[in-house]
Design a protein around this nucleic acid. Structure first.
Length: 585
DNA sequence: AAAGAATGCGCC
DNA sequence: AGGGCGCATTCTTT
């Protein structure tokens, strides 16, 4: 059963809500309720309708905008449908006939601190954009949303693979719930430890507009070493000039270029290293300062929590993006500030080698699936390579080759190994090459569950059609190859993102359901608090850690079965229950 | 002066 | 001429 929650006709979403019950046999409007009564409605309505609350799918225009008051009132929602996110998928999915009833835009996710719940004067309003934002978001009235739901459900039913598409939409919607819950819960973050790390590496917090002391000293030292007093290492141009003046023959100031220059010095290497070591150290500290320094702490860590603002499906492939705060790239250098509360533990679970496993499962390549049945796929590939007498016989080469195949490498070691891969895994390589060919031809590809890559733009079509001169032809070829690399990677990255969504969804479901084999089926107190592509972090009472380990492990296998049925590919994890995030890897 | 592009880092 | 991203800063263009 679906229950659509949207604004009552003529009312703002912040004022009155109209629940519309959508069943197979039609719709039923219920009485509108004031916004403040919404949590009570969600608690009571399933009982009044004689339905198990877990069987209701609550439908929102946008979960990220509408779920928050329910979350704050601790109203449990087990299943939902996010019309905006689903519309984005359905309206671009290949092989789907869909006529929207109404446009439902996906709003920008709202960073926590720009809209702190406790200090907002108008809290309790549901669809407002952040204060000082672009004004109130238009939300279609509930009946229109209900008609839109029906349109989406019909589109799914008519699609070529309704089961898969339905799973994708359910997973995406549940992802929206999870993202909202992580934003609400936050990752435990010890400001004191973070500040101590900054002080140790950078010196005390400087006045606004000044470099930290140790960074300033380092800048002066670099100027001295290179013989260019007053050199500003923040300016790439300035730095490059200074380096060249000092005899460092590099074309850019990138750390990799500098290291490369030093290492090819032969007997001169130690002197070269001495010349650039200050610059490399400066880059490292500068990064720490600008990306995760005091400003970042002030803006993103509140009351001992970092609240990551995710954008579900924000990447075209379906991966999550982050909206501020750098949630998708908490660098190793500051992870030691992530600490479990007293009596609690962080469970950090990292899925190993997801993308080649996805490739094996999608392509049905039995040899690659065989390699993926154990815990180290790359090692198994190397063993298969050795048996076949190919050059893939080392783990490191097998890894480079497979990653290169999925990214579309055309040069270097990786590209050279591709023919060997093709012999060992014709089906897997065939899938990748077919995806690449589609892209090169200007076509689109879809993930396992049906998320479809964007069509090439007019500019691309025009530029690739022009082969009138040698130069134009070369440009056309470059563009085609680039599109091919994108579609080649899209099917893998996108399907891996689907697996991750299902994994997290299963984790959430099992946490709420309670321990799998326990007598008492009480929900666990442990919560998902962080996510990065193929890694999750949970935070909860130490005594739950064993159960949590089982849950994340079983959820990974369950996600594999949800997508691929009984395919013989496992999804092994490395799981650590730790007090500090830094101790997890 | 503001906006956009480029550079470079770091995460998966 | 290896996929995807975000972010801070500098540099360039308008």
């Amino acid at each position: 059963m679906h229950i659509v929650l949207g604004p009552a006709p003529g009312a703002a979403a912040s004022e009155h809500w109209l629940p519309v019950v959508v069943r197979d046999d039609g719709m039923e409007r219920l009485a509108p309720v004031p916004a403040a009564a919404l949590p009570g409605l969600v608690r009571d309505l399933p009982g009044r309708l004689g339905t198990d609350p877990d069987r209701v799918r609550w439908v929102f225009a946008s979960v990220s905008a509408g779920y928050r008051p329910l979350l704050e009132a601790e109203v449990p929602i087990s299943r939902c449908w996010d019309l905006g996110l689903c519309q984005r998928i359905v309206s671009t999915a290949a092989g789907v006939t869909y006529s929207p009833a109404v446009d439902v835009p996906v709003p920008d996710p709202e960073p926590w601190l720009r809209q702190p719940p406790a200090t907002r004067p108008d809290q309790g309003t549901f669809f407002d954009l952040p204060a000082g934002g672009r004004g109130r978001q238009e939300v279609p009235p509930a009946e229109d949303l209900a008609r839109e739901l029906v349109a989406q459900l019909a589109a799914v039913d008519r699609s070529g693979a309704p089961h898969r598409l339905r799973l994708l939409l359910a997973a995406e919607s549940q992802g929206a719930l999870i993202a909202a819950e992580i934003l609400h819960e936050g990752l435990p973050w010890r400001r004191d430890l973070h500040e101590a790390m900054l002080a140790e590496q950078l010196g005390p917090r400087p006045a606004e507009g000044q470099r930290p002391r140790l960074l300033q000293e380092l800048a002066e030292r670099i100027g001295g070493t290179l013989g260019v007093p007053g050199l500003n290492p923040d300016s790439p141009q300035d730095l490059l000039r200074g380096l060249n003046l000092a005899g460092v023959r590099v074309g850019s100031t990138r750390a990799g270029d500098l290291k490369g220059w030093a290492s090819e010095g032969g007997p001169d290497a130690p002197r070269r290293t001495a010349l650039i070591s200050g610059v490399l150290e400066y880059k490292h500290l500068y990064r720490l300062w600008t990306a995760n320094g005091w400003h970042w702490l002030d803006e993103w860590v509140q009351d001992g929590r970092f609240h990551p603002a995710y954008s579900v499906g924000g990447v075209v492939t379906g991966r999550w993006a982050a909206h501020g705060g750098g949630a998708m790239q908490v660098p190793a250098a500051v992870r030691d500030a992530v600490r479990a509360d007293p009596g609690h533990l962080l469970t950090v679970a990292d899925a190993s080698q997801v993308e080649p496993r996805i490739l094996a499962a999608m392509s049905g390549d039995r040899a690659l699936a065989e390699a993926g049945s154990g815990s180290d796929l790359y090692l198994a590939v190397a063993e298969q390579g050795r048996r076949a007498g190919s050059e893939l016989a080392e783990r490191s080469r097998a890894k480079v080759a497979l990653l290169g195949a999925m990214y579309g490498a055309t040069t270097g070691d990786s590209a050279a190994l591709i023919p060997h891969l093709r012999r060992l895994y014709p089906h897997a390589m065939g899938l990748l090459e077919q995806a690449a060919q589609r892209g090169e031809a200007g076509g689109q590809v879809s993930t396992w569950l049906g998320r479809t890559s964007p069509a090439p733009g007019q500019q691309w079509l025009t530029a690739t059609a022009d082969v009138s001169t040698a130069e134009a032809e070369s440009r056309s070829r470059t563009l085609r190859r680039s599109a091919g690399r994108f579609t080649r990677n899209f099917v893998i990255q996108g399907t891996a993102a689907e697996w991750a969504l299902c994994w997290m969804g299963e984790i959430r479901r099992r946490l709420r359901q309670g321990t799998p084999d326990g007598q008492a089926r009480d929900p666990l107190q442990t919560r998902l608090v962080f996510f990065v592509h193929d890694e999750v972090v949970l935070h909860g009472p130490a005594e739950e850690a064993d159960a949590v380990r089982r849950i994340v492990t079983e959820a990974a296998q369950a996600a594999g079965r949800m997508l691929f049925g009984a395919a013989p590919v496992g999804f092994p994890l490395s799981v650590a229950a730790v007090e500090s995030y830094a101790g997890a890897h």
